[in-house]
Every structure is written in C-alpha cells, then in structure tokens.
Simulated assay, not measured.
Amino acid sequence: MPDYKEMYFQLAAKVANAVDILVEAQQQGEHDYTEEETPVISLKNSKREKKGGDQA
C-alpha cells in the first residue's frame, strides 16, 4: 500500500519550491523594471493642450 502521507509531504515540498522560484522571478523582474534608465512608456498631454491659447 502506498504511503500517502509521505507522498503528500513530497508534493507539498515541491509546490513550496515552485512558489519560491516564481516569487524570486517576480522580484527579479520588478527589480529589473525599476532599474531601467529610460521610461518604457512616454505619455503626452496633447489632448489637454489647446492650440492658439483657447481656454474653452
């Protein structure tokens, strides 16, 4: 008869390892993104700027 308790603990340990790998990957991605020197997206306020000085 299989030892289900041992199988469960092995599975739980592997799941915990997988979660640790995913968390580390997320943190590395966030670190890489925040260390970027140039902005990834540049927004312009062209819709808010009125040509000709109109303040309508």
Rank of each mutant, 00 (worst) to 15 (best):
M1D: 10
M1P: 05
P2L: 03
P2H: 08
P2C: 00
P2K: 12
P2F: 02
P2D: 05
D3V: 07
D3W: 01
D3A: 12
Y4A: 15
K5E: 09
K5T: 08
M7A: 09
M7Y: 02
M7C: 00
M7P: 00
Y8F: 09
F9T: 00
F9H: 03
Q10W: 00
Q10F: 05
Q10C: 09
Q10R: 14
Q10K: 13
L11M: 07
L11A: 11
K14T: 14
K14G: 09
K14F: 02
A16C: 04
A16Q: 15
A16W: 02
A16V: 05
N17G: 10
N17V: 00
N17D: 15
A18V: 12
A18S: 14
A18E: 05
A18M: 13
V19Q: 10
V19T: 11
D20C: 06
D20G: 13
D20R: 15
I21N: 08
I21D: 15
I21G: 09
I21P: 00
I21L: 15
I21T: 08
I21S: 12
L22D: 13
L22M: 10
L22N: 08
L22K: 03
V23L: 13
E24Q: 14
E24P: 00
E24I: 07
E24C: 11
E24L: 13
A25R: 05
A25M: 01
A25W: 01
Q26R: 05
Q26H: 07
Q27N: 13
Q27A: 14
Q28D: 06
Q28E: 07
Q28S: 12
Q28I: 04
E30R: 01
H31N: 03
H31D: 10
H31Q: 14
H31V: 04
D32Y: 00
Y33M: 08
Y33D: 08
Y33N: 02
Y33G: 00
Y33V: 05
T34G: 01
T34E: 08
E35T: 09
E35L: 13
E35H: 12
E36A: 06
E36T: 01
E36Y: 01
E37F: 02
E37V: 05
E37I: 01
E37R: 06
E37K: 07
E37H: 03
T38M: 09
T38N: 12
P39M: 03
P39E: 14
P39K: 12
V40W: 06
I41H: 13
I41T: 13
S42Q: 11
S42C: 07
S42A: 10
S42E: 15
S42Y: 06
L43T: 11
L43K: 10
K44W: 05
K44V: 06
K44I: 04
N45K: 13
N45F: 09
N45L: 06
S46W: 04
S46M: 02
K47A: 02
K47Q: 02
K47T: 04
R48W: 03
R48K: 04
R48S: 10
R48N: 12
K50W: 11
K50A: 10
K50G: 00
K50P: 00
K51W: 02
K51Y: 03
K51T: 08
K51G: 14
G52W: 03
G52I: 05
G53W: 03
G53I: 07
D54W: 02
D54N: 13
Q55A: 12
Q55Y: 06
Q55D: 11
Q55L: 14
Q55T: 12
A56K: 10
A56G: 10
A56F: 06
